[in-house]
């Protein structure tokens, strides 16, 4: 392998976004760092599977989320599901001005299922397109879209808010959010 063209040289620059995704996904810095570590080792040893010229950030995010969900499946078999502990907890409505307090928002976000957190971070916050998210998560684009809508609805529910007038057709927010960052490395 010619060391000058080793795609692994680019790994360090992706560490901040990889870690940010891990933290958003599992809501726990220690677990996030273990995930990032596993992802680095897997990426390093499987670099021959990376197609040069494609989006390395997407490739790394995919390894990370696959690792996360396979560990989670394994754990689920070993111990009883603890995910349900917080389910159903509702927060008080936000202050009268209607603005979402960041603290409440984080609490609500952390209560979402990992699948919902994942799709909201990937398709919304980190600027991947629905098509890219579909490829990364191994589901159809339509599934990504409906998952985003359900995740948003659940988030609103947890925040004690009404989803508003524009649930599915209200692509305004979604589209803007995606268009605002797609094409730009959010890292």
């Amino acid at each position: 392998m010619s060391s000058s063209a080793d795609p692994r040289d680019a790994l360090p620059e992706h560490l901040p976004s990889l870690r940010a995704f891990a933290i958003s996904l599992c809501g726990n810095a220690a677990m996030a760092d273990d995930l990032v570590q596993d992802t680095i080792v897997k990426a390093w040893t499987n670099i021959d599977k990376f197609q040069v010229g494609t989006n390395m950030r997407a490739w790394l995010f995919t390894i990370l989320r696959n690792t996360f969900f396979s560990v989670k499946r394994k754990r689920k078999r070993e111990v009883s599901d603890s995910e349900g502990i917080h389910a159903g907890t509702l927060y008080e409505k936000p202050a009268h001005d209607g603005r979402l307090a960041m603290n409440d928002f984080r609490k609500a976000f952390d209560q979402l299922s990992p699948e919902h957190r994942e799709v909201l971070i990937l398709a919304g916050a980190s600027g991947f397109s629905y098509e890219e998210v579909a490829e990364m998560t191994g589901v159809a684009v339509g599934t990504v879209k409906s998952r985003v809508n359900r995740a948003r609805a659940r988030l609103c529910e947890l925040l004690g808010l009404r989803a508003g007038e524009d649930p599915i057709s209200g692509a305004d927010g979604d589209t803007l959010a995606v268009m605002g960052t797609s094409g730009v490395q959010a890292a």
Binding site: S24, M102, F109, A125, G164, G173, D174, A177, A186
Partner: peptide
């Protein structure tokens, strides 16, 4: 509301 949610999600990640 959707715009606020988007902004907050971005903030979580950022």
């Amino acid at each position: 509301l959707q715009a606020q949610i988007d902004a907050n999600l971005k903030k979580v990640y950022q």
